[in-house]
Protein backbone atom coordinates (compact mmCIF):
# COMPACT_ATOMS: atom_id res chain seq x y z
CA UNK A 1 0.00 0.00 0.00
CA UNK A 2 1.40 3.33 -0.97
CA UNK A 3 2.17 5.58 1.91
CA UNK A 4 0.48 8.98 2.11
CA UNK A 5 1.84 11.64 4.41
CA UNK A 6 -0.87 12.76 6.84
CA UNK A 7 -2.21 16.31 6.89
CA UNK A 8 -0.38 16.81 10.17
CA UNK A 9 3.00 16.66 8.40
CA UNK A 10 2.15 19.70 6.31
CA UNK A 11 1.13 21.87 9.24
CA UNK A 12 3.58 24.36 10.65
CA UNK A 13 2.40 26.22 13.74
CA UNK A 14 5.93 27.28 14.66
CA UNK A 15 6.80 28.59 11.21
CA UNK A 16 9.64 26.06 10.97
CA UNK A 17 8.95 23.25 8.48
CA UNK A 18 8.24 19.97 10.25
CA UNK A 19 11.26 18.14 8.85
CA UNK A 20 13.69 20.82 9.90
CA UNK A 21 12.20 21.05 13.38
CA UNK A 22 12.64 17.30 13.79
CA UNK A 23 16.27 17.54 12.68
CA UNK A 24 16.90 20.21 15.32
CA UNK A 25 15.47 17.94 17.99
CA UNK A 26 17.56 15.06 16.69
CA UNK A 27 20.67 17.22 16.93
CA UNK A 28 19.73 18.30 20.45
CA UNK A 29 19.62 14.65 21.46
CA UNK A 30 22.95 14.03 19.71
CA UNK A 31 24.47 16.90 21.69
CA UNK A 32 23.69 14.92 24.83
CA UNK A 33 25.16 11.69 23.53
CA UNK A 34 28.43 13.26 22.39
CA UNK A 35 28.30 15.66 25.34
CA UNK A 36 28.18 12.75 27.78
CA UNK A 37 31.10 11.06 26.10
CA UNK A 38 33.19 14.24 25.87
CA UNK A 39 32.37 15.19 29.47
CA UNK A 40 33.48 11.73 30.64
CA UNK A 41 36.67 12.10 28.61
CA UNK A 42 37.37 15.54 30.07
CA UNK A 43 36.85 14.28 33.61
CA UNK A 44 39.48 11.62 33.02
CA UNK A 45 41.76 13.83 30.99
CA UNK A 46 42.03 16.59 33.56
CA UNK A 47 42.56 13.99 36.23
CA UNK A 48 45.43 12.19 34.48
CA UNK A 49 48.42 14.38 33.73
CA UNK A 50 50.18 11.62 31.83
CA UNK A 51 47.46 11.57 29.17
CA UNK A 52 49.18 14.52 27.44
CA UNK A 53 52.15 12.29 26.65
CA UNK A 54 49.93 9.46 25.47
CA UNK A 55 47.96 11.87 23.28
CA UNK A 56 51.22 12.89 21.60
CA UNK A 57 51.04 9.58 19.72
CA UNK A 58 48.03 10.72 17.70
CA UNK A 59 48.84 12.19 14.32
CA UNK A 60 48.10 15.91 14.25
CA UNK A 61 48.68 16.28 10.47
CA UNK A 62 46.17 13.51 9.75
CA UNK A 63 43.68 15.07 12.17
CA UNK A 64 44.20 18.50 10.63
CA UNK A 65 43.76 17.09 7.14
CA UNK A 66 40.51 15.46 8.22
CA UNK A 67 39.29 18.70 9.77
CA UNK A 68 40.02 20.44 6.49
CA UNK A 69 38.20 17.72 4.53
CA UNK A 70 35.12 17.98 6.73
CA UNK A 71 35.09 21.79 6.61
CA UNK A 72 35.24 21.59 2.83
CA UNK A 73 32.47 19.01 2.73
CA UNK A 74 30.37 21.37 4.85
CA UNK A 75 30.91 24.05 2.23
CA UNK A 76 29.88 21.62 -0.53
CA UNK A 77 26.66 20.58 1.15
CA UNK A 78 25.68 24.16 1.89
CA UNK A 79 26.31 24.96 -1.78
CA UNK A 80 24.15 21.96 -2.68
CA UNK A 81 21.42 23.36 -0.47
CA UNK A 82 21.70 26.78 -2.09
CA UNK A 83 21.47 25.15 -5.53
CA UNK A 84 18.49 23.02 -4.48
CA UNK A 85 16.65 26.15 -3.40
CA UNK A 86 16.86 27.53 -6.91
CA UNK A 87 15.93 24.10 -8.34
CA UNK A 88 19.31 23.71 -10.05
CA UNK A 89 19.26 19.90 -10.09
CA UNK A 90 22.59 19.32 -11.84
CA UNK A 91 24.50 21.59 -9.48
CA UNK A 92 22.75 20.11 -6.41
CA UNK A 93 23.69 16.59 -7.45
CA UNK A 94 27.28 17.63 -8.19
CA UNK A 95 27.75 19.06 -4.72
CA UNK A 96 25.99 16.16 -2.99
CA UNK A 97 28.41 13.77 -4.67
CA UNK A 98 31.37 16.00 -3.79
CA UNK A 99 30.23 15.87 -0.16
CA UNK A 100 29.95 12.10 -0.23
CA UNK A 101 33.43 12.05 -1.77
CA UNK A 102 34.78 14.16 1.09
CA UNK A 103 33.18 11.77 3.55
CA UNK A 104 35.01 8.96 1.75
CA UNK A 105 38.35 10.77 1.98
CA UNK A 106 37.72 11.38 5.67
CA UNK A 107 37.13 7.67 6.26
CA UNK A 108 40.23 6.68 4.29
CA UNK A 109 42.42 9.04 6.32
CA UNK A 110 40.80 7.75 9.50
CA UNK A 111 41.44 4.15 8.47
CA UNK A 112 45.08 5.04 7.72
CA UNK A 113 45.38 6.56 11.19
CA UNK A 114 43.83 3.54 12.87
CA UNK A 115 46.19 1.22 10.99
CA UNK A 116 49.26 3.22 11.98
CA UNK A 117 48.21 3.40 15.60
CA UNK A 118 47.33 -0.27 15.85
CA UNK A 119 50.63 -1.23 14.21
CA UNK A 120 52.39 0.83 16.89
CA UNK A 121 50.57 -1.22 19.50
CA UNK A 122 47.99 1.36 20.55
CA UNK A 123 44.75 -0.58 20.58
CA UNK A 124 41.33 -0.11 22.15
CA UNK A 125 42.34 -1.84 25.35
CA UNK A 126 45.82 -0.29 25.74
CA UNK A 127 44.64 2.21 28.32
CA UNK A 128 41.67 4.44 29.03
CA UNK A 129 42.91 7.25 26.76
CA UNK A 130 43.02 4.96 23.76
CA UNK A 131 39.65 3.52 24.72
CA UNK A 132 38.18 7.01 24.64
CA UNK A 133 40.05 7.85 21.45
CA UNK A 134 38.73 4.85 19.56
CA UNK A 135 35.21 5.06 21.01
CA UNK A 136 34.78 8.76 20.26
CA UNK A 137 36.25 8.66 16.77
CA UNK A 138 34.42 5.46 15.86
CA UNK A 139 31.10 6.85 17.08
CA UNK A 140 31.80 9.93 14.98
CA UNK A 141 32.78 7.80 11.98
CA UNK A 142 29.46 5.95 12.30
CA UNK A 143 27.71 9.31 12.00
CA UNK A 144 29.80 10.10 8.91
CA UNK A 145 28.86 6.79 7.31
CA UNK A 146 25.18 7.27 8.18
CA UNK A 147 25.27 10.77 6.70
CA UNK A 148 26.90 9.52 3.48
CA UNK A 149 24.29 6.76 3.17
CA UNK A 150 21.38 9.15 3.68
CA UNK A 151 22.88 11.56 1.13
CA UNK A 152 23.10 8.74 -1.37
CA UNK A 153 19.43 7.94 -0.80
CA UNK A 154 18.46 11.59 -1.12
CA UNK A 155 20.41 11.90 -4.35
CA UNK A 156 17.94 9.46 -5.97
CA UNK A 157 15.05 11.73 -5.06
CA UNK A 158 16.92 14.81 -6.21
CA UNK A 159 17.43 13.29 -9.67
CA UNK A 160 13.66 13.37 -10.21
CA UNK A 161 13.26 16.76 -8.46
CA UNK A 162 11.46 15.16 -5.54
CA UNK A 163 11.76 16.13 -1.85
CA UNK A 164 14.36 18.81 -2.56
CA UNK A 165 13.91 20.22 0.96
CA UNK A 166 15.68 17.12 2.26
CA UNK A 167 18.96 18.45 0.92
CA UNK A 168 18.75 21.15 3.56
CA UNK A 169 17.92 18.61 6.29
CA UNK A 170 20.85 16.32 5.55
CA UNK A 171 22.97 19.45 5.29
CA UNK A 172 22.12 20.49 8.83
CA UNK A 173 22.94 17.00 10.06
CA UNK A 174 26.21 16.98 8.16
CA UNK A 175 27.25 20.32 9.64
CA UNK A 176 26.61 18.84 13.06
CA UNK A 177 28.91 15.92 12.25
CA UNK A 178 31.47 18.54 11.25
CA UNK A 179 30.88 20.39 14.53
CA UNK A 180 31.54 17.29 16.60
CA UNK A 181 34.81 16.82 14.78
CA UNK A 182 35.73 20.47 15.36
CA UNK A 183 35.67 19.67 19.08
CA UNK A 184 37.15 16.17 18.90
CA UNK A 185 40.14 17.50 16.95
CA UNK A 186 41.59 19.74 19.68
CA UNK A 187 40.50 17.32 22.42
CA UNK A 188 42.24 14.28 20.97
CA UNK A 189 44.94 15.67 18.69
CA UNK A 190 46.09 19.15 19.63
CA UNK A 191 46.05 19.24 23.43
CA UNK A 192 49.25 17.45 24.37
Amino acid sequence: MAFHAPIATGRSNTGIPTGRLAVWWLLASEVFIFGGLIASYLLHRLNNENWGEIAANTSTPAGALNTFVLLTSSLFIVLAHAASERKDIARTLKFIWLTIGCGGIFLVVKAYEYTTEISHGFVLTSNVFWSFYYTATALHACHVIAGMFIMWMISHDVKISKNLHRVELIGIYWHFVDLVWIFLFPLLYIAK
Binding site: L27, I38, G171
Partner: peptide
Protein backbone atom coordinates in the same frame (compact mmCIF):
# COMPACT_ATOMS: atom_id res chain seq x y z
CA UNK B 1 26.13 26.97 7.36
CA UNK B 2 23.27 25.70 9.52
CA UNK B 3 21.52 29.05 8.97
CA UNK B 4 20.86 29.63 12.63
CA UNK B 5 21.37 33.34 11.93
CA UNK B 6 18.03 33.37 10.09
CA UNK B 7 16.34 30.54 12.02
CA UNK B 8 13.87 31.16 14.86
CA UNK B 9 15.66 32.30 17.96
CA UNK B 10 14.56 29.41 20.15
CA UNK B 11 16.57 26.90 18.15
CA UNK B 12 19.64 28.71 19.45
CA UNK B 13 18.25 28.52 22.97
CA UNK B 14 17.45 24.84 22.53
CA UNK B 15 20.99 23.99 21.49
CA UNK B 16 22.65 26.25 24.04
CA UNK B 17 20.51 24.79 26.84
CA UNK B 18 21.54 21.31 25.67
CA UNK B 19 25.19 22.25 26.04
CA UNK B 20 24.46 23.95 29.38
CA UNK B 21 22.92 20.75 30.74
CA UNK B 22 26.11 18.92 29.85
Amino acid sequence: FMHLNVEKRYIWYMLIISVAFM
